[in-house]
Write a protein that binds this DNA or RNA. Structure first.
Lengths: 341, 341
DNA sequence: CTGAAAGCGCTTACAG
DNA sequence: CTGAAAGCGCTTACAG
């Protein structure tokens, strides 16, 4: 057993190096290096000795080329549990696989702009993707100073020319959702937005208004709140108690739509027989509600993919066609909408 | 402008090194190194020159200590879009922040066991967390050979003494779900399991049976399928068409429970007035259904946290108390259950 | 504050 | 197959 000697070494304060492993295994440093890198010109017996020493010493290579060739991209969310996050991470990780880039999701930790830029840059990241975060112009300047390529995935704000961003077609999505309800014969269609401080809420609301206008309906029924279940329950409940209640509601997000469905249940109304409901997002849960939710699909996975590709292009100094790209939303028709009665 | 000289250099084939940056900025290598590492003993003017050169050359440090101190843990899922994944990643990333470890989520790519072990080990990871994957004993042997610390998060299989794993209390959860329904006065309680090839399904089913037994009910109503919405719709629909239908259903997962709620709607039954429904998992969507779902909470976030901490302990050569730990499930009572009528 | 010199951990030809 | 020698990219004292 080599355990006696190796324990001596492993209990010493310093972490083991290639040299430590080499001497423990009774071979030269180049030989250990070859084993580590999967080279084939090492005999089986030697390889076994080296692997044993690596295990005994718990050796982990530290700054070799093997590691250094790897590229890292950090992708920052305000909230990793947001149902968006999973889909965006999925797309980014997929694209990363193709581009040879390792994607690291992080939650924004509340550093100051300078700390943040310094930390990310000092950790040797090849770029950073920021998701729907409130990005100050100071922060952007800091990343620029640090020479750090950056792409913003923003489904919320208006695009800025200061940085490269990826969004989705909110206005068009609002039109599509409302047109769908109009085509089903609905005339009293309510809309519950998310916060109107967010450009995406404004765009969706104006999509709704544009569709109504074209149909000759000039009295929109509008409410507003957070992108939350509770907002949907509260605002829809107000409407559903009235005699002239809407026969359909277009919600500014899936979470709001789920709340609207609950308000219908509490009011003793059935979806879609008594009330049609449309959401916005098409996150994982939308297909599994009862009834399954008709909603505007946001291509979150594709946005994650595009962000990684664009970032690698920026990093390589290649030009990007536009500082902002919007991917198309698409209406996903399920069972929560039906012809008006 | 330094652009002329720097362009010459940046268009050369080799990536820039510290030396390139130093000569472009007209300073020594140690000075560039100091700037890179955020040292304070550099004048503002010099720092600016160096930062400019770094930007011009798109210099990225490659194998310095700054990077090499960072520890990486890979966390592997069969499917990153699984609603589990977001919660586990969240917990792992949190614990990583505390332990100074960077967590990298990956989808299992279908490498052979040897390729997989070699790739992960060659990329200098400090350990690997595997989530509910089908882990062959060969794979375990490969990781062990590579000296790679490993922890398995497994809510599905029986624990093995061959490796360190983290699970949750499935049997107890099944008992709690069923007891809750019994306390509400239900006697005809159906149970729809996931695949009985998975130990977790068996444990939940036996929890259900144990609770019924204790209540003196010896004719369980049981069905089985995938952990899917469609399974819930299909199996519940069969039961709900019968005169002696169950008044409550305990589903083996939230997805199945969502399907059960849909089956109730299709049969013209109300939840919870005509049918109580309990799920298992308590993933993000469970609180947002209509009505909100009573379900057995699995501590997925905590499992992710514990996995990272345990992994770092293994890596440091510290002993772990047990090769398997189960975290407690807990019944989350919402509005999908009510007293029997 | 700045940089010449020594050093660290690892890899790459290449001779045997 | 194996390893002495040279080299790479970066950092760390430390003298000025």
């Amino acid at each position: 057993m080599a355990s006696d000697a190796s324990e001596n070494i492993s209990t010493s304060a310093r972490r083991p190096t290639l040299a430590t492993v080499a001497s423990a295994a009774g071979v030269s440093m180049p030989t250990v290096s070859k084993v580590l890198n999967g080279r084939l010109d090492v005999s089986a017996a030697t390889r076994a000795k080296v692997e044993q020493a690596i295990r005994d010493l718990r050796y982990v290579p530290v700054a070799g080329r093997a590691r250094s060739e790897e590229r890292f991209v950090e992708i920052v969310f305000d909230d990793l549990l947001n149902p968006y996050a999973a889909e965006i991470i999925n797309g980014a990780a997929d694209a990363g696989l193709g581009e040879g880039v390792t994607v690291i999701p992080k939650r924004h930790t509340g550093d100051t702009p300078r700390e943040w830029a310094r930390r990310v840059s000092a950790s040797g990241r090849d770029g950073i993707i920021i998701v729907t975060s409130v990005l100050t112009s100071e922060q952007i300047a800091r990343f620029r100073e640090a020479g750090l390529p950056m792409v913003v995935i923003d489904t919320v704000n208006l695009p800025s020319a200061e940085f490269t961003s990826i969004g989705s077609t909110n206005f068009t999505g609002g039109v599509a959702a409302t047109d769908h309800l109009l085509k089903l014969g609905h005339r009293r269609i309510g809309h519950i937005s998310g916060p109107l401080t967010l450009a995406c809420s404004v765009a969706r609301r104006h999509g709704y208004r544009a569709a109504l206008d074209r149909a000759g309906i000039y009295d929109p029924i509008e409410a507003m709140g957070w992108f939350s279940y509770d907002t949907g329950v509260r605002e829809a409940s107000t409407w559903l108690g009235r005699p002239e209640r809407p026969t359909a509601i277009f919600a500014g997000s899936d979470q709001i739509a789920f709340g609207v469905m609950e308000a219908a249940r509490l009011a003793g109304l059935r979806v879609p027989e008594d009330l049609s409901v449309v959401g916005f997002d098409d996150t994982y849960a939308a297909a599994s509600t009862s009834p399954p939710l008709t909603t505007v699909h946001q291509p979150l996975k594709e946005m994650g993919e595009l962000a990684v590709r664009t970032l690698m292009r920026l990093r390589a100094g290649e030009p990007v066609a536009s500082h902002h790209v919007e991917l198309a939303t698409r209406l996903e028709v399920r069972a929560s909408t039906a012809p008006v009665r």
